[in-house]
Design a protein around this nucleic acid. Sequence first.
DNA 1: TATGAATGAGAGTTCATTCAT
DNA 2: GATGAATGAACTCTCATTCAT
Lengths: 218, 218, 218, 218
Amino acid sequence: MGRTKAKPGVKPGPKVGKDRRQEILAAAAQVITDRGLSETRIQDIAETCGVSTGLILYYFESKDRLLVEALTYANDQFYLRLSRELRKNPSARAQLDRLIELSVPGLLPEFQFLDEWALWVEIWVRALRDPEMAKEHEVLNRRWRRSIADIVRHGRSTGEFPEGLDADELGIQIGAVVDGLAIQVLMDHGDVTPDDMLRVSRDVSAKLIGFALEPAGA
Amino acid sequence: MGRTKAKPGVKPGPKVGKDRRQEILAAAAQVITDRGLSETRIQDIAETCGVSTGLILYYFESKDRLLVEALTYANDQFYLRLSRELRKNPSARAQLDRLIELSVPGLLPEFQFLDEWALWVEIWVRALRDPEMAKEHEVLNRRWRRSIADIVRHGRSTGEFPEGLDADELGIQIGAVVDGLAIQVLMDHGDVTPDDMLRVSRDVSAKLIGFALEPAGA
Amino acid sequence: MGRTKAKPGVKPGPKVGKDRRQEILAAAAQVITDRGLSETRIQDIAETCGVSTGLILYYFESKDRLLVEALTYANDQFYLRLSRELRKNPSARAQLDRLIELSVPGLLPEFQFLDEWALWVEIWVRALRDPEMAKEHEVLNRRWRRSIADIVRHGRSTGEFPEGLDADELGIQIGAVVDGLAIQVLMDHGDVTPDDMLRVSRDVSAKLIGFALEPAGA
Amino acid sequence: MGRTKAKPGVKPGPKVGKDRRQEILAAAAQVITDRGLSETRIQDIAETCGVSTGLILYYFESKDRLLVEALTYANDQFYLRLSRELRKNPSARAQLDRLIELSVPGLLPEFQFLDEWALWVEIWVRALRDPEMAKEHEVLNRRWRRSIADIVRHGRSTGEFPEGLDADELGIQIGAVVDGLAIQVLMDHGDVTPDDMLRVSRDVSAKLIGFALEPAGA
DNA sequence: TATGAATGAGAGTTCATTCAT
DNA sequence: GATGAATGAACTCTCATTCAT
């Protein structure tokens, strides 16, 4: 991957601040995904990017700050990829399809580098008690719902979707369905498979927005 | 029921095991709700029920075991209260209404003694990495979806609801909406209020099940 | 000495709280004397009394609290020994002599178990910036000056000393001389020896109080 | 004097070694005064003189070396100012008065740029265990006592002071009184005010040297 | 000269767990 | 059953020191 791998026995030398920060944030997000937020140690992050623990705290004022930034960073990355994908599709229905597809946990591992939903759950837990995280969550959350609402608005402007409920309201409704289903898939009991999520999300979205889906398999 | 009855007004001496366990579980659930799972110390739980830390570990083999049991215990309590409430209503529509009502975070504090949804989120996080919790979650989760599916089945048997999608499928769909909205309410940004959740859950459920809601205010 | 020595390989077993606290305070005072306040580690104290570092912080809320208490404790011990000694002498001049004698650094090692003056200097440094220590210092300091003033008052009541300056004022003056000389002796450059301090303190005290010393060697 | 003169108003480039060293020493003395020796970090010193920590250690082989030098440096500065002041007064009694005046903590802030006595206490603590500091202290200490003894000798040569005790002995005695009182004033409990120190130091000095003070207010 | 990124050795503190009583 | 003293293994964070640039 994009990691600079230090040859053993050779000091990699200093990097400019911004690169290092991003490297650390990426490492942190990775570790949080792997071990969970509460089991993430600074040491783990340091090892993941091959530096000392001292350096981590040289770039971030505290572990807590770093973790919040890492969660935000990972979500930002996801959002950027998502936006890029959506822009490729002119049709609102294709966009909606793509958004759903990209949101199914584990469906497109080449797209979801990290387990984005696992990070969302960590964000929720933390936001419940950490005002700083709560603030960040508010931003991330609105951005997510707006992505959906924007698709609805776009679909109406092109005539693909009928007029109806307020688009923001639909953002909330469809967002809730996708969130709720993603949790089920994430928990991985087999009751709700990725394919189930895909199908159900589409069905329910269609019903809520008010357009007809092609018959399955079409 | 085999309980030793502590004489009222007398300092309770040693208690029989089952009582103590429940007391500790209740205290643990309370502390987890207050401080979050990862910030819960055995000492906190001990203080909450006025015993020593030693005693906590005398009854539970380890902190981890205790926490998992406490989360399960709290959810059981919620489920028992929910079932009791549902049984009071003969009509499926009233049952569905009641289920939704009881699920809105913070709407009925006299019913939700603890912040049940905050505990759900903790369960999700933990289930992601702890197989024991994952196992428990599977049970709790199915029970929750079945509560919904059973209402659907009941409504169809009484003719209140039309035939349509598989009831279990609807359990998943409506469950997802409720879960997703509950998170939004829980996060408490004001974008989705308890009343919003109430209204939207009812609307979407009606649309998905296929019955007509009375006009608002009726 | 009074230390319970744990047989190797055998756990010494728990002690009652108050004993342990005193043991730790004594150990802390010892370590501070040996290595200096700023070089005193909790680990050092723990080793000195043969317990774990965890136990130290089980008895004292923080290292800082412990250090302040230890300095106070050591001074208390010194003061108690001093008072006991003074009470043995009915004559004010003998009391003054004894007080001076007991105050000379290193003169009576069987009396000054610790290097009390080294601890005083640490108290001064700390009191300059730590309000808690400043508060304690105020008490210890006044007690010290009052010991001197009380001797003066006693001497006047017996007719040994002439009337003159306010006794508290003399407490300040003689206290200052003793403090100042003690520092010189403590620094141990040989310019002011313990015997010098003894002699000078007596001379200056006599002059300040206003009585005649017997010719040297009498 | 071999100084590179930095053009005024122009960002100073690299400086010649001696200037830099002095700048750093002054900054170090300032920081030690402000925060105390044991709380002084290289970083603090670096910030105070606006350079990097690297540079500090480029000029001083280690933190410990720097601190000792800084304490010496500050005392040197005080001594130079003191000597200059004394030379202004031909009369020994005026010199003694001035010396005492200049020694009272906080009395003449325009003269005592730093809290010289706070630094003395730090010197004492450090000298107790650091042989290097002990060595320096010996020098500084003797210089201090000699300043007093020299005034006594001067006063005798002019006939202001009577013959009597050895002048060095008086240096020790008066020095001790001043040291002891300075500590009391420094501790700032209000029991010994700067004015008290002034008055008492003069009284006791007069008594010890053997001359008569003018009546107060004269 | 001067910088500041990087290290690494501790330091204090927390806390689950044990165990003698 | 119940206590709480005691342990010891982590963990976060600090800071003097080094070194490539």
